[in-house]
Amino acid sequence: MTAPVEGPRIEIEYCAGCRWLMRAAWMAQELLSTFEGQLGEVALQPSRVPGTYQVRFDGDLIWCRKRNGGFPEVKALKQRVRDRLDPDMNLGHLDRE
């Protein structure tokens, strides 16, 4: 068995009643694919608060559906994670206008 990767924890808190599990799982997959070997964990957390969709990086809120006016585009979410994880990291086509 290999040792777990040490790195930041991403939490995606979603409204289970709104059926947003698949969206949260897809976002988690995208983050794990892009930042493979750099993230310690991506956790999916059902919320008891209706309409919740929030993303935290080591406990700091980096996206809130209500505050930011909707769900994040995967490009924007990856850029926010990159800016916290390694600001000099090139995301290839995601960094192009």
Rank of each mutant, 00 (worst) to 15 (best):
Y14V: 12
N68H: 06
G69A: 11
T52A: 14
P8N: 04
T34H: 13
S47E: 13
F57T: 02
G37S: 09
E36I: 02
G40N: 04
G40I: 05
I10D: 03
I10A: 02
I12K: 01
L44W: 06
Q45D: 02
P50K: 00
R23C: 04
F57M: 02
E30I: 14
C15R: 08
A25M: 02
P50Y: 07
L61A: 02
P8F: 06
C15N: 05
G69N: 09
M27R: 05
P46K: 15
G69W: 05
L44T: 13
R65T: 10
F35K: 04
P8D: 11
A28D: 06
A28R: 13
N68M: 05
Q54H: 08
G70D: 07
E11N: 01
G69Y: 07
W20E: 04
G7K: 03
Q38L: 15
R56P: 00
A24W: 13
G51C: 12
Y53W: 15
I10T: 02
Q54S: 08
R67N: 04
E13T: 14
E13K: 10
A43P: 01
L39T: 06
R48S: 10
M22K: 09
R65L: 14
R9G: 00
R56L: 10
A43K: 11
T34S: 15
L32F: 09
Q38F: 07
P46W: 11
L61N: 02
M27S: 08
W63F: 06
W26Q: 15
V49D: 14
I62K: 05
D60H: 00
I10V: 10
V49G: 05
T52H: 05
W63L: 08
Q45P: 00
R56N: 04
F57D: 07
T34Y: 12
Q45L: 13
C18R: 07
E11C: 01
E41A: 13
G17Q: 02
M22S: 13
E30W: 03
F35G: 03
M27Y: 13
Q54M: 10
F35Y: 00
R56F: 12
L39G: 04
L21V: 08
C18F: 05
Q29W: 10
V49Q: 12
V42K: 09
L44N: 15
Q29Y: 08
R56K: 09
L39M: 07
L21N: 06
A25K: 03
I10K: 00
C64I: 01
W63N: 11
C18D: 06
R48K: 14
P50G: 13
L31Q: 05
P46H: 10
M27G: 04
W26I: 10
G7M: 04
E30A: 15
G59E: 03
E41Y: 00
R19A: 10
Q38C: 07
